[in-house]
Design a protein around this nucleic acid. Structure first.
Ligand SMILES: [Mn+2]
Ligand SMILES: [Mn+2]
Ligand SMILES: [Zn+2]
Ligand SMILES: [Zn+2]
Lengths: 163, 163
DNA sequence: TTCTTGTTAGCACGAATTGCAGATTAGGAG
DNA sequence: CTCCTAATCTGCAATTCGTGCTAACAAGAA
């Protein structure tokens, strides 16, 4: 059972049934997000959209993405401080990020749902997110070439205080 | 073995040994971060620092935090799009976030290190981060009072495309 | 076609963070 | 202690990402 954002046609129907209008801008963005699996930023979508519809506004891209998120048709992903990325994959899944090129890939993590935090017994937990940081094969090659290996986590002094 | 940012005195020594100067501003920030376990933002630290040292600049707070991070003395935490938060806890640990008040708490997650992503076999994984979203006990009370329960994940249409 | 109402485009604005440069100072040499 | 200089600090401009606002615009019903 794989859950994704609805098809453009289905979304059009949903929009109409909610009294919202099905504009060309929205339809285009429905297409661009549907089946999109690269977790694009608003700017990236804006660039793609502009190619097919010169004059479309970045504001409209943000608005539509926010709408879809409110409707539960896509998710926001915030990783590492960069711009928000959008995900039409509504399944229970997680992400790997390449610390070199920034690409984000979907991954399944068996056992993630079973994770439990120690030290937050007074919280009602709602959901869990797992993010792996690493280097993709393509970037790994570039690294090999330029000699630099996967960087140590703490390049600084090693003497740590044990407490 | 608990790893944390060094003590203010130790940091002073490290700074001098690196040819960096031990200024009053830095010393104050060392103190404020050391043993700080609330994952403060730069602005929050700036406020605390300003109380003890009126005139200190926000720019200096950012600079010092960036330095310490480069030296591996603290970590950046980016969660949910808000401002970056800083963490002097260098241990292998994870976080719970209260979606109401934004507080971030350290947690241990047994089994986190054993997690493996399916679908990223071509990545060299460097590290894993687990973030739990939930509601803290304090906010839970407020919710009970105002009647609102823990919100459903997708308030929108239920009919999803199975693929 | 006309009317109503939701939508779009564009720009101003806001939050978070960094770039810059002149004024200031820590810390070592004399 | 005084002087010197490189490192640092401060204040402000600039940048990046995203939102508020509103007049012009257009979907869709009548
Ligand atoms: Mn995803
Ligand atoms: Mn922490
Ligand atoms: Zn890469
Ligand atoms: Zn709370």
């Amino acid at each position: 059972m794989v859950f994704r954002m609805q098809s453009p046609a289905a979304l059009a129907a949903i929009y109409r049934s909610m009294g919202r209008k099905v504009t060309p801008q929205r339809q285009l963005l429905f297409q661009l997000m549907h089946e999109n699996d690269c977790h694009p930023t608003a700017e990236a979508l804006f660039a793609e959209a502009s190619a097919q519809m010169p004059g479309i506004s970045l504001r409209t891209v943000y608005q539509t993405l926010n709408e879809l998120a409110e409707m539960g048709e896509l998710q926001f992903i915030d990783i590492g401080g960069g711009p928000t990325r959008f995900d039409p994959n509504l399944d229970d899944h997680h992400h790997v990020v390449c610390i070199d090129c920034g690409q984000i890939r979907d991954v399944q993590v068996s056992g993630a749902a079973a994770l439990h935090p120690s030290g937050a017994e007074d919280f009602v937990i709602n959901e869990v997110g797992v993010v792996f940081q690493g280097v993709c094969s393509s970037c790994e090659k570039s690294r090999a070439k330029s000699g630099r290996s996967v960087r140590a986590k703490s390049p600084a002094l090693q003497a740590k205080v044990s407490k």
